[in-house]
């Protein structure tokens, strides 16, 4: 960062003018109207957008009108894996929670279209998370992504409807004996859901398939499983969605462990993945007409 531009207003002005000319080859810079500037902010992560509060007085709260709240944590909070003890981790958790609370409090826009949280928040934070979703919901939420550390049976929210939600993405940490069918309640609460993505971390458990309920999801077009193992735990939910989604276009089954996505090992063809793929073929029989089963 250029320290010189921070001090002495007159000198600074000169610097920024010449820098302007250097950067853009012109002294008459087009001004974009606020709504377009906010549109551009909406395509940045929150950290990026919030930095613009330092640009000028008038811009101080402009970023709070962004309709997309993507809570990718700053590195210092993010890297909890490097923390030696639980107290330090808990402190970072608090920082993250305070950050989300603060931004939601500052948010000045009428709409929140997208809301994404990514952090190591567990079941004990359900109350906070539910409240955040409520806040976003009141502003017309359409896309919700929860990349947290939640257990299947704790996903009892929402106890409310998400009437405008179109995209839902969820991370689930499943234990032996869990059933993802518990998630159907969440899906049911979103009558206009178009796309459902599930990232599953689960043990390879064997048990009998459970009965699944009937409930039609009239708008669901795309379902994506990441970390598919092809055991009753996820097969049940996949069968359920295939049978209850009359306009389904595509079900994508990706056997790669969610934590390996984007890593060097993402495309390594291990035996677990080959077996999961074989088991995923069982889904084929129930794929509704006009829909496609994609096994990666």
């Amino acid at each position: 960062m250029k320290r010189r531009s921070l001090y002495s207003p007159s000198a600074k002005d000169k610097v920024s003018k010449t820098e302007n000319d250097k950067l853009f080859g012109c002294c008459c810079v087009s001004r974009l109207p606020d709504d377009i500037v906010v549109n551009i902010f909406s395509r940045l992560t929150l950290i990026e957008a919030a930095r613009t509060s330092v640009v000028s007085r008038r811009w101080r709260y402009l970023w709070t009108f962004t309709a997309n709240l993507d809570f990718q944590a700053p590195d210092t909070i993010w890297k909890i894996g490097e923390e030696p003890n639980e107290i330090a981790i808990e402190k970072k958790r608090c920082m993250y929670i305070n950050w989300v609370e603060k931004v939601l409090e500052l948010h000045g826009g009428k709409y929140i279209n997208e809301f994404r949280i990514h952090f190591d928040l567990g079941d004990d934070q359900k109350t906070n998370i539910t409240r955040w979703i409520h806040t976003a919901l009141a502003k017309g939420l359409e896309t919700l992504e929860l990349h947290l550390d939640l257990k299947v049976d704790s996903i009892q929210f929402p106890l409310f409807e998400l009437p405008k939600l179109r995209h839902l993405t969820f991370d689930v940490n499943a234990n032996n004996g869990d059933s993802l069918l518990d998630l159907t309640r969440m899906i049911k609460a979103c009558p206009f859901l178009c796309k459902f993505t599930l990232k599953l971390i689960s043990e390879d458990s064997k048990r009998k398939l459970r009965q699944f309920p009937n409930c039609r999801h009239e708008h669901l077009k795309v379902v994506e499983f990441i970390g598919f193992i092809g055991r009753p735990i996820d097969l049940e939910l996949a069968f359920y969605l295939l049978e209850n989604s009359p306009v389904l276009e595509k079900m994508i089954v990706n056997p790669t462990h969610p934590l390996l996505i984007g890593s060097y090992f993402e495309f390594e063809d291990v035996k677990e993945k080959q077996d999961a793929r074989k088991r995923a073929k069982r889904l084929q029989k129930r794929v509704p007409q006009g829909a496609l089963l994609v096994i990666l």
Partner: peptide, 19 residues
Amino acid sequence: IENKSVEYVRAFFGVENDF
């Protein structure tokens, strides 16, 4: 403007710093 300094963002949008 991703990962760019505040100075760069000011220049990009043509906004004067009045702080």
